[in-house]
């Protein structure tokens, strides 16, 4: 389906204080792809993602979602298509209870109250947060907040899922749960992460950002096999590709 193509052309962004966070970024992501965006702190990952649903306005260049250019007029439609999980869950949760927060999006989309109820229940189960339903979001732990934040977006059934450091702050079990959830998600997935093992496991493609530019774009094994590139961009191989410090086995050798 051409509907869910994400096309970024010569995107630039300069913050109001003069920081050039993005300098000429271009790529095309086709339907069903799972893309990991990696890079050091301050490389511009969050800035890039926030352009994908129009949260930030480009200083230069353009963004097309399914051949529709992102502009003021198309914004409501594009926001329905692109589901966005922000880096800081505190920014995403603003209603008095978890239930209200997850119901916020579907209610805005005009679903009936019964549909909303069912959807919220399903989605909270999916992220393993069913028991948090009536709690106020500000009383949750960091990882619980993150799971609820993801639920608030899934409840709107987006066609493109965009997540900024989704596994950051999750315990190993919740991380596994989320990874399974992302594997099962049928449509386009775009996420940033410092969890390179997750990127290796989930992504068919990796885009490396460095100081606001795309430094590499390719299959994960190719990228993570390029030590020079990784060092330049202040990155490391995923742990699963490094030699085992205990038994000395090096899986990377088998790969090459």
């Amino acid at each position: 389906m051409s509907h869910h193509i994400v096309e970024v052309r010569n995107l630039q962004h300069v913050y109001s204080d003069g920081t050039a966070a993005l300098k000429d970024i271009s790529f095309i992501i086709t339907h069903g792809e799972s893309v990991g965006i990696i890079g050091a702190n301050g490389a511009g990952k969050s800035t890039l993602l926030q352009h994908l649903n129009g949260s930030l306005e480009p200083t230069g260049g353009s963004i097309h979602i399914g051949h529709t250019p992102l502009s003021k007029g198309t914004l409501p439609d594009i926001r329905r298509t692109v589901g966005m999980v922000f880096q800081d869950p505190d920014d995403q949760l603003f209603m008095p209870t978890v239930y209200d927060d997850v119901a916020f999006g579907p209610l805005n989309l005009g679903y009936s109250i019964d549909d909303v109820e069912q959807r919220v229940t399903e989605v909270l189960e999916l992220v393993g947060a069913g028991h948090l339903r009536d709690k106020p979001p500000y009383h949750l732990s960091g990882g619980e907040k993150k799971r609820v934040a993801i639920a608030t977006v899934l409840s709107m059934s987006p066609d493109i899922l965009v997540m900024d450091e989704p596994t950051n702050g999750l315990d190993p079990f919740a991380r596994r749960q989320l990874m399974k959830l992302m594997k099962d998600f049928k449509h386009t997935r775009i996420f940033t992460s410092h969890d390179l093992d997750m990127v290796l496991e989930l992504c068919g493609r990796v885009i490396v950002l460095h100081e606001g530019e795309v430094w590499a774009d390719g299959p994960p094994l190719e990228i993570f096999g390029n030590s020079k590139l990784l060092a330049e961009c202040r990155l490391e191989k995923p742990l699963s590709m490094q030699g085992c410090p205990v038994c000395g086995n090096n899986p990377a050798k088998d790969i090459n």
């Binding site: 949260s55 409501p76 800081d88 505190d90 920014d91 995403q92 603003f94 805005n108 977006v153």
Partner: peptide
Amino acid sequence: QRAERIHMAMLARGFTGAFHASRQ
């Protein structure tokens, strides 16, 4: 800034200026 980010998150979830009741 935080208020702005929260507003962004609300817009991202289809907020158009109306709050809907979750109880009928």
